[in-house]
Design a protein around this nucleic acid. Structure first.
Lengths: 190, 190
DNA sequence: ATCAAACATGTCATTGTTTACATGTTTGAT
DNA sequence: ATCAAACATGTAAACAATGACATGTTTGAT
């Protein structure tokens, strides 16, 4: 699925400020940005190799301790330009945002309400945990008070991504609870 | 990315009520359920072949006009059971819900506010069009008045999927507008 | 000192998905 | 009658992504 060579640009983007190793990128995808894109280390290492060949990045070795070699990557001029162009690219259509829970739900004509509610309950738990995690992250990085307009340009991307993840999760939970109410109402009428 | 053999279950699910051809399924993915899963005809036809081999579905020919053969598929008992089991499966974790716009945004530290707003504007247009389309669909299938509790069990899946798609889109648009406000506020302070 | 968890890098086989190639029929508008 | 759009089915090459295999180092807790 998915648009063309997104991982390529995700990697170039992660290198926009600091040099990083493949391992660092793997870690990044476990943080905030991992809410919107992610890749396993196996894919990252092969993509890095390709980007080196294409001369969009260059690499050097940094020692971690006495023997452990960290391979650090930097954007080349060519890489910076390519990234810049991609960042300003406007999508001309929206792709399917896949969601297996919603797919499953679409088929649930034969499933008893009780089982249906159990599925919703499970999804609600998972989503609530995620929301809590995101709220903690937000509080940690941006404090309890409203930050908004007076942030560093540097932090703005992080701020947007976290608020987006939060609102997505809140919305999901809200819809889950509304839908559960409907199912319960229908149960009464059975 | 993505969970295991979802297309397999999407196809079995589409066959839950009526027999369908590969072409019919391709069309289904352009309707409501396409908001949450979709596949191209090439992938559908190869998956159907596989499901036949696995004896989860069986097929027969239906003539469309005088020569055009439509290959229709039905769930076998085995297929029904497999589908049923999958429908009741609870996810044990949430996967990354990829979103290229949010990814791009995360990297936008060097982009001037004007360009940033143009990107948001574009996204807002795409999302607004989609929301309108969904609202029309909703009005068409469920009328203007509040349906909710007194729907056929049959239609409930469709109802859930449409309300989910609607609320997802409304939420996206709301976040876009809030973020654009923040960018404009920051512009004033420049 | 031991040892587990985290750090660190890579390859390979398989699966999932898209794009392009390839071909033919039916319907409905003009 | 013509013709384009929609109907209809398939294959193949290339690309995207995961999971398993494979190996070794450093850090920090006990």
């Amino acid at each position: 699925m998915v648009a063309r060579r997104v991982l390529k640009y995700a990697i170039l983007g992660l290198l926009r400020k600091d040099d990083k190793s493949g391992y660092d990128m793997t870690s990044d995808f476990k943080q905030a940005i991992g809410q919107f894109w992610s890749a396993k280390h196996s894919q990252i290492y092969t993509e890095l190799k390709k980007l080196l060949e294409e001369e969009l990045i260059s690499s050097y070795i940094e020692l971690s301790g006495e023997k452990l070699e960290k391979k650090m990557y930097t954007l080349t001029e060519k890489g910076k330009e390519d990234l810049h162009t991609w960042l300003l690219t406007q999508d001309d259509h929206l792709e399917t945002e896949k969601d297996v829970f919603a797919l499953r739900l679409y088929f649930l004509k034969d499933i008893p309400s009780a089982d249906l509610l159990a599925l919703f309950e499970n999804q609600l738990n998972l989503r609530t945990d995620k929301l809590n995690m995101l709220q903690e992250q937000f509080a940690y990085y941006f404090g309890e008070e409203n930050p908004a307009e007076d942030l560093d340009a540097d932090e703005l991307g992080h701020y947007f991504v976290l608020t987006k993840a939060l609102s997505r999760e809140e919305n999901y939970i809200h819809w889950l609870m509304e839908s559960m109410d409907i199912i319960r109402q229908r149960q009464l009428g059975e």
